[in-house]
Simulated scan of single mutants.
Amino acid sequence: MEPGDHDGTPDDETGETEPARRLALTRRSALLGLGAVAGFAAVDVGGFAYAGGWLRPGTPTPLTPARFADRFEQVSGRHDGFRRNHAKGLAATGTFASNGAGAAICRAAVFRAGTVPLLGRFSLGGGLPDQADKPDTVRGLGLLLQAGGQQWRTAMINLPVFTDRTPEGFYERLLASKPLAGTGKPDPQKMAAFLDRHPETVAAMKIIKQSPPSAGFADSTFYGLNAFWFTNSAGATVPVRWSVVPQNAVGPGGPQPPRGKDYLFDDLIRALAQGPLKWRLLLTIGEPGDPTNDATRPWPQSRRSIDAGTITIAAVQTEQAGNARDINFDPLVLPDGIAASDDPLPPARSAVYARSFTRRAEEPKSPSEVNVAQVLA
């Protein structure tokens, strides 16, 4: 699920050798897109997938990373060299300035007071690298932060909950959401049948519709969606979900009329030409009874959140070799102090990202749809 490309999430690989080491949805009208992805492969695909419980070796047609990648190609076509989901994007560079507050619940070096570099990627859900920007297309933000010789990678989207609880559910929705040749929209009967079988997706969509998209990337809140375990220096462990909340002054709220095919990315490029953009990293702490294995269900708004510091994006770059084009925002690349929970989606995402990356790494690379220099010319 490339994040899942995600439709969510769900929605490429571990990637421990790319330059970053040296320093995760189709449209909502089609019931969203998967989750975010990227990167360099060095992951045991079978191990992660089996650990997630979604490979079915004893069945005639087991759900495998290869089948997921094939399905993305069947829905969006094959586009050599691009991610199978969240294909359209821009690389980014910046910093994370930790205020030290996160260290109360997590011993990872990234939460010690201080500033560390980051690589990132802004993207749109779906497998079309040249799709036209639309306000309701899922937006993604992938981040790679490095501190203390360890990396933390996360792929977030601008939806408050995920549309699917399990990899199997995501795959079923992907099948049901394939556009018909005559209308360009999913088969309504197949989609209705899917929703009848998955009331959790219906409930998630109601929540998502209550949070209309903002005008652009700069004023989007991005959510990690899945729960992880955070452990502090004293050995205390708590469940955590995180989000990044914009701190940027933007124009009038609400979706703006499209001004060109790439208007969301063009606006981001022009905004950064005027100065850095900032988001606050919030760590929300779960309490007993809060689901850690179901990304379709939100935690109560009353849960305590810690403002852990400021994410600053200083610049974006046209995707090319050596920047975030080659980073896999694998959700299981975690530093000491952060561990996966019982949520079945991250292991599946990790495995599918790896399969996607190994394919695109061997393919010729076409020019990026979004070119920073052309926008600023």
Rank of each mutant, 00 (worst) to 15 (best):
Q317A: 11
T318Y: 03
T318L: 02
T318A: 05
T318H: 04
E319T: 07
Q320K: 11
Q320I: 08
Q320E: 00
Q320W: 09
A321N: 11
A321Q: 10
A321T: 15
G322C: 03
G322P: 03
G322R: 00
N323T: 13
A324Q: 06
A324P: 09
A324N: 04
R325P: 08
R325G: 00
R325N: 02
I327P: 06
N328F: 06
N328D: 11
N328H: 13
F329Y: 05
D330E: 09
P331A: 01
P331F: 13
L332M: 00
L332G: 00
L332Y: 02
L332E: 01
L334F: 02
P335F: 05
P335V: 01
D336G: 14
D336R: 02
D336V: 00
G337Q: 10
G337Y: 08
I338L: 08
I338N: 09
I338S: 13
I338R: 09
I338E: 08
A339V: 11
A339I: 02
A339S: 13
A340F: 06
A340D: 08
S341N: 12
S341T: 14
S341D: 09
S341C: 13
S341M: 04
D342N: 12
D342A: 15
D343V: 11
D343T: 11
P344M: 15
L345F: 11
L345Q: 12
L345W: 05
L345I: 15
L345M: 15
L345A: 07
L345S: 05
L345H: 00
P346K: 00
P346S: 04
P347M: 11
P347W: 14
P347S: 05
A348W: 06
A348V: 12
R349N: 04
R349P: 09
R349I: 14
R349D: 10
R349T: 14
